[in-house]
């Protein structure tokens, strides 16, 4: 039982991070039908930018204001990077065949990954301990302040995003553009602006995810975007790619699954089981857990 509760907490923590990152994949896919392979590298970049902002720009002294500043500046810089990737790598290919855009996405991923390596080096860097290590022992289950922060902040961001997408005019325009871009244009929706909006939102959430990875795991490497990106991508597919609540659910479920495999079987095998799970889901429900299944009347 102790293992169960402990892994539940750990799983919710990493699941929250997967979910935040998965949202970036799923929103871009929803509107553009493109897997933004650069997204994972943006997440990795965020951890390095956070490190840089903290130690170079904000003086390296921990205080509440500095932590807020690290988050704010990193989010801004990473969303600018996401915006740039869209402008340079995807917009020129808007009317090109799908495969060209996919290749361009892989190219953008490599550019960012190697850019991180050129700037910060190939060795592992240690992310600063921005959040004090406070640990509670609740009946044998260890919970840290960082874990609580990750879970609570992720939840708030996801609830906020959900309301933004479901209840606001821009949110409705985003959903409309995801369904039918031409029909959206006929409504007067500037689909290019919608795409910029989702890149900025997705990159911002990814930036928060990257900072959480830094805070939680501490060791950050230039190529870690591939790994976390892949997890988040699996989470997005599990939930039903293009579906926003699906990405949230997929992320949390994948995090829990991973933690329980690590707790009960072996952490060495958790990756293998993750992909077995993906394959099973794709066989049983190719559209994902919450994938669209509205019958289309013709």
């Amino acid at each position: 039982m102790d293992i169960f509760l402990q892994q539940l907490v750990n799983g919710l923590t990493i699941g929250s991070m997967f979910a935040l990152i998965a949202l970036g994949y799923t929103m871009v896919y929803g509107v553009m039908k493109l897997i933004n392979f650069a997204h994972g590298d943006l997440v990795a970049g965020s951890a390095f930018v956070g490190l840089f902002v903290f130690s170079e720009l904000l003086g390296g002294q921990i205080s509440f204001a500095v932590v807020l500043g690290v988050f704010a500046l990193t989010i801004i810089l990473i969303s600018l990077l996401g915006f740039t990737v869209e402008r340079l790598a995807y917009r020129p290919l808007r009317n090109a065949p799908r495969l060209s855009a996919v290749v361009s996405a892989l190219g953008a991923s490599m550019v960012i990954q190697n850019g991180i390596m050129l700037i910060w080096g190939p060795q592992m860097r240690i992310f600063p301990e921005l959040i004090p290590t406070i640990i509670w022992d609740i009946g044998g289950v260890v919970v840290s302040l960082i874990q609580v922060l990750i879970m609570v902040l992720s939840m708030l961001l996801m609830v906020g995003l959900y309301f933004f997408v479901e209840k606001t005019k821009i949110g409705t325009a985003i959903r409309a553009s995801a369904i039918d871009q031409d029909a959206a244009r006929l409504m007067g929706i500037n689909v290019n602006n919608i795409i910029v909006t989702i890149f900025i939102i997705g990159s911002s959430l990814g930036a928060v995810g990257g900072l959480f990875i830094g805070l939680y795991y501490r060791g950050i490497t230039f190529n870690m975007g591939w790994q976390y990106g892949l997890y988040a991508f699996v989470a997005a597919i599990m939930g039903g790619i293009g579906n926003i609540p699906g990405a949230m659910l997929g992320g949390i479920l994948l995090g829990l699954f991973n933690a329980f495999i690590a707790g009960y079987i072996s952490s060495t095998w958790s990756d293998a089981f993750t992909f077995i799970l993906l394959i099973v889901i794709l066989i049983v429900r190719p559209t994902g857990i919450l994938g669209e299944r509205v019958a289309e009347k013709v």
Binding site: I179, D182, A183, L186, G188, V294
Partner: peptide, 23 residues
């Protein structure tokens, strides 16, 4: 651009209806 047309006062009900099916 296409999205500027409707505000001039032209509205288009397209072939095949193209309603937003999951809205």
């Amino acid at each position: 651009p296409a999205h500027k047309v409707v505000s001039l006062g032209i509205s288009h009900s397209p072939e095949g209806r193209r309603v937003f099916n999951i809205l």
